[in-house]
Simulated assay, not measured.
Amino acid sequence: MSFEAAMRLAIAQADRVKGTTYPNPPVGAVVLDSAGDIVGVGATEPVGGAHAEVVALRAAGERARGGTAVVTLEPCNHHGRTPPCVDALLAAGISTVVHAVADPNPVAADGAARLAGAGVTTVPGVLGAEVAGGSLREWLHKLRTGRPHVTWKVAGSVDGRSAAADGTSQWITSPQARADVHLRRAAADAVIVGTGTVVADDPALTARTPDGALYDRQPLRVVVGLREVAADRKVRNADSPTMLLRTRDPAEVLRALADRTDLFLESGPALASAFLRAGLIDRILAYVAPVLIGGPNTVIDTIGVDTLTQAPRWSYDSVLRVGPDVLLSLVPD
């Protein structure tokens, strides 16, 4: 198996555990024997459990000796809750280590250098951009900036409307798009809305399967605003914890959620615009349905743009079809 093919399998393993490994990053690993055949796969276990390399090495056993480890993140070189992954790789007799992204954490970094010093061949950067923009996106962002990564999820018509003139909005996007949102909720640390959304739509903000069952993992539900949230609102039920933040300041919201990594903003136009004005949105996920609605209910309020030269520019990270809809992923220029 090629290094790239093995890395894609490792990426799939990392994607599978995303959201379950905090504060550790979601990492995937594949072990190939000396002939290049898969003998072990693994992903990071919940905190206190084994790292991805150790899980894959356990599955491989003696077949790992003389083989190759393919990992989405450079193996760690420090003793935290668990011993260094470098030690496990050396003890297993791995001869080559392939990784996608270098570990930017100064406490855990330099695993590849230590492996090379012990005579192990190291191959860095295989599918590095794909991993950095995928399963490790939010974790890397927090290491760089010191704050959680904020994704604004917005769903609307092709002309930028979130509801018809009478307020009806269920549903603009397709079942496939809504299923994709629920999968992303299940991987997020928290889902954020404003009190206006709770009053108008009474969302549950849980992560649910297409048949309505709850996923095993649920995000923290965060409601932001000064209005009271009635006890009978769905966000007050027992399906998932809920945090009520009596503020309208996005910076205060991030301070309250500083121990989290991956925040999913699903608010209406007022709170989303406040986050945009504050420069605190790191990615936009826009689900665009092929429908024209018109009218006053736009997906965003004013963001301080009085003339076109003031408009913030974004770059397309990816463009995907989701059923009949289009999912646009954008990052700031």
Rank of each mutant, 00 (worst) to 15 (best):
A56Q: 01
M1C: 09
A251R: 12
D262S: 12
L327D: 00
T242C: 15
P219H: 05
V107K: 12
A256Y: 08
P106M: 04
D180W: 14
A60R: 05
K18H: 11
L90M: 08
D259L: 11
G160K: 01
V193F: 02
A258S: 15
L276E: 09
A6G: 09
N237E: 14
S174I: 02
D216S: 14
A278V: 05
P104C: 03
T195H: 00
R63D: 04
V288G: 05
V193E: 00
R65C: 13
H79A: 07
A187Y: 07
A187G: 08
R313F: 13
S267G: 15
V253T: 02
T20L: 12
K18G: 03
S2G: 12
L127D: 01
A56S: 04
P104A: 02
G67N: 03
G67T: 06
L143W: 13
V120K: 00
A251P: 05
G49C: 00
R161L: 12
T145S: 14
Y316P: 10
L285E: 14
D211S: 14
T209K: 13
R283E: 15
P75D: 00
Q310D: 15
G304F: 11
V229D: 01
A204K: 09
A278D: 06
R233I: 05
Y316W: 11
G42T: 03
V101E: 00
L143T: 05
V181K: 05
I293G: 06
V55M: 04
T173N: 14
I94D: 00
V70M: 03
K18A: 12
A88C: 02
N105I: 06
D259C: 10
G279Y: 10
D87C: 02
W139C: 04
T96V: 13
T96H: 08
N77E: 04
S329Q: 11
D216V: 12
H99Q: 04
L32A: 03
D159V: 05
R233E: 05
P26H: 03
R81W: 12
S315H: 13
E62L: 13
R184M: 14
A251K: 07
Y316K: 08
A164K: 13
L9W: 07
K153R: 12
A186S: 15
T168R: 15
R137P: 01
R255F: 06
E252C: 00
T145F: 13
A207G: 09
V158M: 15
L73H: 08
A29M: 07
L292M: 13
D87H: 07
A155P: 08
L320F: 10
G225P: 06
K234V: 05
P219F: 07
P219N: 02
D259T: 13
V55R: 00
V150N: 00
Q218N: 08
V319P: 07
S95Q: 09
A52H: 04
P148E: 00
D159E: 07
V55F: 08
T307W: 11
F275D: 02
P25H: 06
L214P: 04
I303A: 00
P269G: 03
M7N: 00
W139F: 14
R227E: 15
Y22L: 14
G268W: 07
A274Q: 08
R277F: 09
G160S: 04
E4A: 13
T302M: 10
R255A: 13
L327G: 01
Q218T: 04
G225Y: 07
A200I: 02
M7I: 03
A286Q: 09
I281S: 01
T151K: 11
D159R: 08
A231F: 11
